[in-house]
């Protein structure tokens, strides 16, 4: 906790938002079932945290989850037309 003398005059943040790893908030983890994926990339489109990446749509690469930022909202699994994404319970490993 900073004193009033130590803080800036107004809240000014020099921390990049990428430093906040929101993946730690996740209780359900999306996992792809590759053989069901039709490469429509709806999951990539709807991810509110931009945590899904696709290396090359032309070569039909599979979507990849960045679990550092995926909050486990399940939107990708909900929207997937082929039920190719399964939400699995996070467990203490």
């Amino acid at each position: 906790m900073k004193t009033y003398q130590e803080i800036t005059i107004t809240p000014i943040n020099n921390v990049d938002s990428r430093a906040v790893k929101t993946g730690a908030w996740r209780t359900w983890r999306p996992v792809l079932i590759p053989e069901k994926c039709i490469h429509c990339y709806k999951c990539w489109k709807v991810c509110p945290d931009v945590a899904i990446s696709v290396e090359s749509p032309e070569e039909k690469s599979l979507p990849v989850w960045d679990y550092d930022y995926c909050k486990g909202c399940g939107l990708c699994a909900f929207e997937c037309p082929k039920d190719a994404i399964e939400m699995q319970r996070e467990v203490d490993q």
């Binding site: 009033y4 005059i9 943040n13 020099n14």
Partner: peptide, 22 residues
């Protein structure tokens, strides 16, 4: 830099106090 960001209750008063001082 990020401007006008969220401040938790443990610092809001201090920012308001600075306006009072100004």
């Amino acid at each position: 830099l990020g401007f006008g960001s969220l401040v938790m209750p443990d610092n809001y008063m201090e920012f308001r106090y600075k306006i009072a001082l100004a």
